[in-house]
Design a protein around this nucleic acid. Structure first.
Length: 491
RNA sequence: GCUCCUGUGGUGUAGUCCGGCUAAGCAUACUGCCCUCUCAAGGCAGUGAUCCCGGGUUCAAAUCCCGGCGGGAGCACCA
């Protein structure tokens, strides 16, 4: 008798039909925009599965629509993957296989599995709705071949398309003689004017996946209905069929990923660019201080499911916090500074550790008894209160007003009194802190999605590299974005 | 409208294929305690799910069957 191994699974579920050392996956982005969290999920899943079975990952640019694609995006996607740490074994472009695709298209036409349709868009769409064939569908092979050839020169864009001979009465509307190839005269970012008949997604993916040796192909759920077409095409072409699986797309509440939404925001200046820290683009997340390891852990924690969910950004933050905490320098920051004078100060310098547990060096701060403390803390103080200036000494408040005075009562740590961070008044560094909030609330642009707060911090800030993660004590984690700007990562 | 997919605590998931070992594990969020010169991290504990609903099969159902209901997606010469 076989005992069922029923136990907690770690990582992604096993792949159906996967053999060790014989798995090939692919990540097929269209180079039509900057990579975002959705690309991260897809590429990480693709890579993890390849890794899990000792297989390979192919990065394939699905560049079959010259109207939308641009050279800079090919590069941006590779930069994004590099940053994420997704390693691929091969890079290729679908557009490099145009001759193969033409050959396959011709094969479909010759076998009567595809035909050239010259009906106008409205008629086609009407026929689809009404499940009716058009007269082009009945055309003989000669007609189709003549028209096919004319697509390369005589026809204008929109005048003729190649359609799959599917099933006009299928419940699955995708199967009602879908478009396979169309004419686009826009120059291609790589091939310029070399081609003008371009395959659409369904044809390109099916052929490419098959010839690339892909064993397991993954895509997001909204393509689900196209899987029937995918297999039908490969069937008619007598080509090897990869296993196609779908997963739910990843998006955060209030942080849309679609170019349709994001592009206008950039153009109208509502966000600073595609690297705005409020955006779920990889560049945005990076600037915000989210690290790649956190994204990977987060993506894997979501599992491989088809349920429609909006995972909370907080979960990503939690993974991130655990990763950056051990490497974040601790610094003091003061918002809304109030002057505090310690009348009997006797120190000229203090040395403070940059991290409570790990050895990240120490910094020296000059002291002269004149400080700034946060107004938030200052306004709670009363004469006679005892507080501790963190890492320094304890003081008793002797005067309250627009400025505060106090005197030292001791230097030993007292657990029960309030502890407040401070900045020495002799050399403060002015910075602004960018704090992101969700971009959209109930589909409305959140005009307050970016808060810019003025603050002062320590001289040591200037010594840190751009990109450094800092934990401003009692405030939160921030990433140094420039000499005078930090971006709030999370609490 | 039609078709497909989906439905486990506030949230994200594991378990569902092959019914019992789990009246449901983990993470996140929240609460409390410990630790700590931070409101962080770490340690411990706790709150929180009749596994969408209703039937059925069975000694036994989150898991199988039937019927509802909720949510999402597709219906492009975009991917």
């Amino acid at each position: 008798m076989i005992v069922k191994p029923k136990q907690e699974r770690i990582g992604l579920p096993p792949l159906e039909g996967a053999e060790q050392n014989n798995v090939i996956t692919r990540f097929p982005p269209e180079p039509n925009g900057y990579p975002h969290i959705g690309h991260a999920k897809a590429s990480i899943i693709d890579e993890e599965y390849a890794k899990m079975y000792g297989g390979k990952l192919i990065l394939r640019f699905d560049d079959t629509n010259p109207e939308k694609e641009r050279l800079e995006y090919y590069a941006a996607i590779r930069v994004g993957l590099d940053w994420l740490g997704v390693k691929y074994d091969l890079v290729k472009n679908t557009s490099d296989d145009m001759e193969i695709i033409y050959k396959k298209a011709k094969e479909l036409i010759d076998a009567g599995n595809a035909y050239v349709c010259t009906c106008d868009k409205e008629a086609i769409s009407k026929n689809r709705r009404e499940m009716l064939p058009c007269k082009c569908r009945a055309g003989n092979l000669d007609q189709n071949n003549t028209r096919w050839n004319k697509m390369f020169d005589k026809f204008k864009p929109g005048e003729a398309i190649v359609r799959f001979r599917g099933d006009m009465s299928s419940d699955n509307t995708v199967m009602r003689d879908p478009t396979l190839l169309r004419i686009i005269d826009e120059p291609h970012p790589i091939h310029k004017d070399k081609y003008r008949v371009w395959p659409n997604y369904d044809l390109a993916v099916a052929i490419e996946d098959s010839i690339d040796g892909i064993t397991h192909a993954f895509r997001t759920k909204e393509y689900e209905l196209r899987t029937e077409l995918y297999y039908a095409l490969l069937d008619k072409l007598n080509m090897r069929k990869p296993k196609m699986l779908e997963f739910s797309r990843l998006e955060f509440e209030g942080m849309p990923v679609s170019k349709r939404v994001l592009k206008p925001l950039v153009e109208e200046g509502k966000v600073s660019g595609f690297d705005d820290p409020r955006l779920p683009t990889l560049e945005g997340l990076r600037r915000r201080g989210i690290v790649p390891e956190a994204i990977r852990k987060f993506v894997l924690s979501l599992g491989f499911t088809k349920s429609d969910t909006m995972p909370p950004f907080e979960t990503l933050e939690s993974f991130n916090r655990k990763i950056i905490d051990p490497k974040s320098v601790r610094l003091f920051i003061v918002f809304d500074p109030v002057k505090l004078t310690v009348t009997n100060n006797n120190l000229t310098e203090i040395e403070i550790s940059n991290h409570p547990q790990n050895d990240m060096g120490k910094r020296r701060i000059r002291i002269d008894g004149n400080f700034y403390i946060p107004n938030n803390d200052a306004k709670t103080l009363k004469i006679g209160d005892e507080i501790r200036l963190l890492e320094l000494y304890n003081i008793k408040i002797t005067k309250i007003g627009s400025e505060i005075e106090g005197e030292i009562t001791g230097t030993s740590y007292k657990p029960d009194i309030p502890k407040i961070q401070w900045i020495s008044r002799n050399n403060p560094v002015n910075i602004e802190v960018l704090i992101s909030d969700v971009l959209f609330i109930n589909d409305q642009f959140n005009e307050n999605s970016l808060q810019i707060k003025q603050a002062i911090t320590e001289q040591y800030y200037l010594e840190l590299n751009v990109g450094a993660e800092i934990q401003f004590v009692r405030f939160g984690y921030c990433r140094k974005d420039s000499a005078n700007q930090a971006i709030y990562t999370h609490k």
